[in-house]
C-alpha cells in the first residue's frame, strides 16, 4: 500500500460507521427525551392536577392536548421509534453483531411505547376533546373520571417501557467498536 493511499477519502465502511455513531447518539437522546417527557407527566404534572379542581384538571389537559399538536412534539414522539428502526435496518444489513439484539430490543420497546400511546393515551385525549370546550361541559366530574386514572396508568407503563429502550440503546453505544483512526 503506498503512502499516497492515505490522502484518499475514507473508504465507505468507515464513513458509514461514523454516521451510525451519530444515529445511535441521536436515537438514545431522543429516547431519553421521550422517556423523560412521560416521566414528567407521571411524577409532576398528573400528581399536581390530581389535587386541582375538576375544572382546572379538565381545562389544563384540554389545553395541553391542543398545544401538543405541534411539529416539535411530533418529532420527539415519533423520532425515537424512527431512529431506532433506522438503526435496526442498518445493523441487520451489516450482518450479525454482538449488539444487534440490543438494537432489536430497543426498537421493539420504542415501538411498544408508541403503540401504547396510539392505543390508549390518544383515544383518551380524543374522548376528553370530544366532550367539548371545558367552559361548556356540563359534567366535568364525569369527563375527569373517564380520563384521569386510565391515562395515568398507561402513561406510567410507557414511561417504564421507554426508559428500558433507553438502556438498551445506551448498551449499543457501549458495545459498538470505536471507529478506526
Amino acid at each position: 500500500m503506498s503512502l499516497d493511499h492515505t490522502t484518499h477519502p475514507a473508504p465507505p465502511a468507515a464513513r458509514q460507521r461514523v454516521s451510525t455513531n451519530v444515529l445511535i447518539g441521536v436515537g438514545v437522546v431522543l429516547t431519553g427525551l421521550l422517556a423523560g417527557l412521560y416521566y414528567g407527566f407521571a411524577v409532576s404534572v398528573m400528581p399536581a392536577l390530581h389535587r386541582s379542581s375538576d375544572r382546572t384538571m379538565v381545562e389544563a389537559m384540554w389545553e395541553i392536548n391542543r398545544v401538543i399538536q405541534n411539529p416539535v412534539f411530533f418529532l420527539s414522539f415519533a423520532g425515537a421509534p424512527i431512529a431506532s428502526l433506522w438503526l435496526l435496518i442498518r445493523a441487520r444489513r451489516g450482518g450479525s453483531t454482538p449488539y444487534l439484539r440490543w438494537i432489536a430490543v430497543g426498537f421493539a420497546l420504542n415501538a411498544l411505547g408508541l403503540l401504547i400511546t396510539i392505543a390508549f393515551n390518544i383515544p383518551l385525549n380524543n374522548t376528553l376533546d370530544k366532550a367539548g370546550d371545558p367552559a361548556r361541559v356540563s359534567n366535568l366530574a364525569a369527563a375527569r373520571d373517564n380520563f384521569e386514572n386510565p391515562w395515568i396508568a398507561w402513561n406510567i407503563v410507557r414511561t417504564i417501557v421507554t426508559t428500558a429502550a433507553f438502556c438498551c440503546l445506551a448498551r449499543v453505544a457501549f458495545l459498538r467498536p470505536r471507529s478506526p483512526r
Binding site: G32, G36, G40, F41, R55, A60, V67, T163, A170
Partner: peptide, 29 residues
C-alpha cells in the same frame, strides 16, 4: 446519562407544552 435524559425530557415537556397550556388558562387557574 439516564437521569440526565429523564430530567431533560421532563423539562422539555414544560417548555414545549405544559407552560403554553397553563398560559392559555385564565390567570387564576
Amino acid at each position: 446519562a439516564l437521569g440526565s435524559g429523564l430530567v431533560g425530557g421532563m423539562f422539555f415537556a414544560f417548555s414545549t407544552f405544559v407552560m403554553p397550556a397553563l398560559g392559555a388558562l385564565p390567570a387564576s387557574q
